[in-house]
């Protein structure tokens, strides 16, 4: 992996362990390996979708990448600069370039601030605007860009519906002219008809402003719609990564296959599909992941080797990486079909 001009963000061997405290002296008795050696790159102007089930570490990855939580080890290169080496004041400058939109628009807006202050606060703080008048103009501009009525700028969050609040969160993220936005389940809490409005808005803004997204979601159909490339996570590790087409049409890892076939089809005539894989069992605890391949306890194709050997993630074709002992064989089998 080399950093070229096209790469906006490069994550190298990122690890985030959360200690488990216990015993009389509250010493560390173990670690929850929320993110365990994750590496990926995001190209400028692209959308990388990060999918996985709850507890797989996708949100922790998003937050660690933004330095909202300190990593255990690893590097995040933003435009070639390792953001973990930056001093506090230098990091503050980078904060304007990297923003986040959270899942729940109810808990992520301060109920005591009017909308113009929620959106405008960071502009003044980061000296993007020099006075209040300029700020208000920019707030109005952003509000109309995000599908809100500028005349409602004096209202408070409780006067808005869920979808409108998510628009406010997006406007707030864009207030500091970022290049990179992490969307952490940004549409998951919304109603179906509102969800599609917000997805369209995110896509429009991305194209108009040349934004780069890390789009975290558990919803495969949403990820498929919005992403250019996709990374699939399982128990803190990336198990498969590639372009949208590689992941959705030429997937190799058994977990990707299972995830895709578990998602209910939209066509009632396609139900009772015999090829459908229904995974047995639950997600193992990330505090005590299985030995060998982490997926082997639920994998329908697991062999004895899988319980012992730890698979490395490796490229099986340009831009397509898989973490499975049998990746090459499975890819060849798929190609033969």
């Amino acid at each position: 992996m080399t950093t070229d001009n096209n790469t906006l963000l490069e994550v190298r061997h990122l690890k985030k362990y959360f200690p488990i405290k216990g015993g009389v002296f509250q010493s560390t008795i173990g670690n929850v390996k929320a993110v365990d050696d994750v590496s990926f790159t995001v190209k400028r102007g692209e959308v990388l979708g990060l999918v996985g089930e709850s507890g797989c570490g996708k949100s922790t990855t998003g937050r660690t990448v933004l330095n909202l939580i300190k990593p255990t080890s690893g590097e995040v290169l933003y435009n070639g600069v390792n953001i973990y080496d930056l001093s506090r004041s230098e990091m503050n400058k980078y904060r304007t370039k990297m923003q986040i939109v959270f899942q729940d628009p109810y808990s992520s807006l301060n109920p005591r601030l009017p909308i113009y202050e929620i959106i405008g606060e960071a502009m003044l703080e980061h000296h993007i605007v020099s006075n209040k008048e300029e700020m208000m103009n920019k707030v109005f501009d952003l509000m109309s860009k995000c599908g809100l009525f500028p005349e409602q700028a004096g209202r408070y969050p409780h006067q808005f519906s869920g979808g409108q609040r998510q628009r406010i969160c997006i406007a707030r993220a864009l207030a500091v002219d970022p290049e990179f936005v992490v969307c952490d389940e940004a549409v998951s809490a919304l109603d179906v008809s509102i969800q599609s409005q917000i997805i369209n808005l995110l896509k429009e803004l991305q194209e108009d402003m040349g934004l780069t997204y890390l789009f975290i979601s558990h919803d495969l159909s949403v990820v498929k719609f919005i992403s250019d490339s996709v990374a699939v996570m399982y128990l803190g590790e990336i198990v498969e990564m590639g372009s949208k087409d590689q992941i959705f049409n030429n997937f190799v890892h058994p977990y990707t296959e299972a995830l895709l076939s578990a998602a209910p089809s939209f066509d009632p005539r396609k139900r009772n599909n015999a090829n459908r894989i229904i995974l047995q069992g639950d997600l193992p605890s990330p505090a005590n992941p299985p030995a060998g391949c982490r997926f082997h306890t639920r994998c329908p194709f697991a062999t004895e080797r899988c319980a012992v050997e730890v698979p490395e993630i490796r490229e099986i074709e340009p831009g397509h990486s898989v973490r499975c002992l049998y990746a090459e064989e499975r890819a060849a089998k798929r190609a033969a079909q």
Binding site: V192, S196, L220, S221, F225
Partner: peptide, 22 residues
């Protein structure tokens, strides 16, 4: 409702939306 949902088989640049709020 049916058209606004990104189906696994749809691709395209925009979703059809129902305007407005519930």
């Amino acid at each position: 409702l049916i058209e606004s949902r990104p189906d696994m088989s749809t691709s395209g640049t925009r979703l059809n939306v129902i305007p407005g709020n519930v």
